[in-house]
Design a protein around this nucleic acid. Structure first.
Lengths: 198, 198, 198, 198
DNA sequence: GATGAATGAGTATTCATTCAT
DNA sequence: CATGAATGAATACTCATTCAT
């Protein structure tokens, strides 16, 4: 069935976009890697940009969708904030491929500016709701909650990029990173890779 | 003297990179905007990428250099953390052009990956030093301080992008944003633009 | 039976060739319009060009065949020349689709050059014979008769194209046009659409 | 100077369009024949179609412009009609290249439909004026004069195509052809090439 | 007969870069 | 220093045709 070919193209593209970035990756590279003919590409995607958008959309929606569904791994104790950060980190860990692609190609790159914008807005709304429910910011205005939400997103995103992508950390360090970011817990003084992966 | 031409090219490029991104901006666009001939470009820059790197390097070094020199605007009371965040926000505010360029083209875009990496490392070291001096994280290991430093950077960066670039906020809101992010102060409940610029 | 499909393809192609021309019409357009599968096309035609040739041939042969059979609509009084012109016009009127296709795609277009050449030769021979029988050109050489024949064809063809196709005139004007071209009769001073269809 | 290159491209294109037709002629063929680089083509023309239109426009305007200026070769005796036909034939003879291109690619081909339409309208107006001045059609309405004008054009065009292009006749036969078409004069019974160039 | 997914050769067009003036 | 005409390698995309089902 044709969906196999389509999936092969997506898979190949994902790999190449991650390795070389969107602009360096040629359609000819993708089809060669996917083992299909040049024309087959255009059977499933209108253009290279269409493919990129399609990939970015589904990946980013998966991220926000996962976060929306509630804490990952069934975590739900009383430390709401900590759990939220940990959930985010976990989700980012599982989506580091798209994280790398987005960071390499621009959060607001021409090609996916709208998709990216929608994603950040979604994320912000989810976090904002979470902040409201936590009751930790009783006096904050809407705008202040939004600022705080974006602050959390930025925090998690850059740390996730630096540790999961650049330093290639495994999932066993998620707890430690979450504790460090939130200032909760005191474990994990050692064992995390430093700047140069040491 | 020729430096005028060079500056004109840089200025034009900065504007175009910000507006359309690096890949959409053609050398021909730049020289037209700068009012010089096609060949003149290559008297001052080896390639389009060379120009981009040159711009990115000087802008990013200016940012980290400014932060290194100490609090902007002579601010230096005892709330070290608050001051640091405020300094960062102020610097980002004054460099929103490069902030937008970086966000549009990718933090780790092929062309400036090394420059960008060096910048983030610099920023991290500065913040780490700041955190050490603040004495707030007495028990943190090197790695934990680094994580915390990156968390601060990510926080400030995304918020700065969202409010200064996307919502086009003026400098009068820096205080308010800094207070919100740090949880210090309680002013500014109103007056900040929301998601839709309202 | 399959002939239905074949006819459907021919009909769809005729319509599309007329509307958009041969080169702008894709096989995929034709099969979509005919409601058959891509592969079905090649059950009945060897190639897109084969279809075009097939259509052109049958249409053009119908035109020359009709003219050869004698005056259309049983007209046969003594004004041989007038009748011939009128017959031609009538036939062209009933074949304006192919007339438009030929005009849009070139009398001697690569694809049907031979068919077109044969058609014009046929037409010329028929008209020449007619001229001979009319006795109006007793002293003309073979070549002169041929020139005269082609002159008649060119005359009728361009006028038919301009009035039947461009100005979309109905059959009620055939008489008028024939009288005007031949200089016979004096009716129809009015009622014909002008350049701008007025 | 650059105009040399531009002229070289036009010249090469004219030759190739005539020989192979517009669609069979590739930009790469043109630049190779003109001895310039692929990119040079786009320095002077926006596209292949732009070049075709440009060529068609200037050639067709030259034809109608020449006819408008008055009888070719200083011919101006009292036989107005004969002179007009002869002028037309002479002009077509000198422009047989474009005549062939137009006939091979379609009088109303997508690419130059508007240019071609304007040309025929121009020609018609010129001929109509000529018919008026000749005083031969005192009773004809506007529409009748237009029909007559188009009839003349069609007559001359097809004969010119058949004898100058297909049979490759020289200019020495113009007189003979004009006499035959108009029915004036009685010379030239022999010497003209027949259908098969005999 | 009928299908339509797959093919891949073919081509117009772009644009960073060069270099003679 | 400055120019801008010329370059040509590079690439996304098209579409007639095939063939396994």
């Amino acid at each position: 069935m044709g969906e196999e070919k389509k999936d092969g193209i997506i898979e190949a593209a994902l790999k190449l976009f991650e390795e070389q970035g969107y602009h360096q990756t040629k359609v000819s590279d993708i089809v060669r890697a996917a083992g299909v003919a040049q024309g087959t590409f255009y059977l499933y995607f209108q253009s290279k940009e269409d493919l990129f958008r399609s990939i970015a959309k589904s990946c980013l929606e998966e991220i926000s969708g996962t976060l929306k569904k509630g804490p990952v791994d069934g975590l739900n104790d009383n430390e709401v904030f900590y759990q939220m950060i940990k959930s985010c980190l976990t989700i980012y860990y599982h989506n580091k491929t798209i994280l790398r692609i987005i960071y390499r190609n621009g959060v607001a790159s021409q090609e996916i500016a709208d998709i990216s914008e929608a994603f950040y807005n979604d994320m912000m709304l989810i976090i904002k709701q979470c902040l409201l429910e936590s009751g930790e910011y009783p006096d904050y205005s809407e705008q202040q909650l939004e600022i705080t939400a974006y602050a959390k997103i930025g925090m998690v995103e850059l740390v996730a990029y630096q540790w999961f992508v650049v330093r290639n950390c495994g999932p066993e360090h998620i707890d430690c990173i979450a504790q460090t970011i939130t200032g909760m817990g005191n474990g994990c003084k050692t064992g995390l890779p430093g700047v140069n992966g040491a």
